[in-house]
Amino acid sequence: MNTMKLSLGPIQYFWERQRVLEFYQQAADSAAEIIYLGEVICSKRRLVKLEDWLAIGTELRQSGKEVILSSLTLLEAATETSSLKKLCSNDEFMVEANDISAVQLLSAAGKHFVTGPSVNIYNGRSLQLLARKGLKRWVLPVELGLETLKDLQDLRPEGLETEVYALGRLPLAYSARCYTARSHNLPKDDCQFKCIDYPDGRLLKTREDQAFLVLNGIQTQSALTHQVLEQLPELQALGVDVLRISPQYSGTLKLVEIFDAARKGNELKPLNEKLLGLLPLGACNGYLVEQAGMDYQAEVSHDTQKVV
């Protein structure tokens, strides 16, 4: 069985330009084989432009990385459609479609593409249809679990790669409204780029102080970090090709090292302990075991880890 590859998903937050550049300089030396680049949340975040992403991508490719450009998830303005067309017509890198609009543009142009976690592929018929349109790799929607993944792997067309969102706060929802701006009592059109102050998103707690969600501009994420390290043997057995690590503001490359050690067969329990110490607010993995996404099943159920 092939070793699973590691990918770095697109940065979902709004970071300073310098921080983005540094992050990818470091990522060039990491164990991640695949790197997704681009702004997927808000078209007003323009500290790093398409030309910059192309330049970063070229450097990463020279370091031996497979580079994919990720598209905006929620399209509203006509200018966003124009930017998407520009992105999809680039001849350098494959594109990750995060909306069906990108799927249409890429398939009409006869290009291969990846679909991100926000493209709804819930059954084999969808998978087969998109494979005919040029799909090369798909990311399992985050709310689906191992049982459905197993069924989908059985139905997946030959040559199609499966990627799983393996670590990161969960992308849960997208809106016309900017919640970060709203939390500062500002309208979206005058947001003052408040997202820059929250490089891991802005925490939303219940009135009992339970860390529940994170506001990231127009996106809502989980406050807990979804992580599947302990399910690695199952994912490997199901023939998953790629594990995605979604960047957080600090510690991301250490997380890549942990996943790298895990896929090479090192003992999971101590790695998991180390991983939990790197997360902003704690872990969840409920979706993978067909539970509420916020749940965390700490026990390792698979045979290879039955340490009593």
Partner: peptide, 21 residues
């Protein structure tokens, strides 16, 4: 619905059940 429909998982995050599933 204040979130774009069909891509909102808030409900399954809290309960395991969403509009999609």
């Amino acid at each position: 619905c204040v979130m774009v429909e069909g891509r909102c998982l808030l409900s399954s995050y809290a309960t395991g059940r969403s509009p999609n599933t």
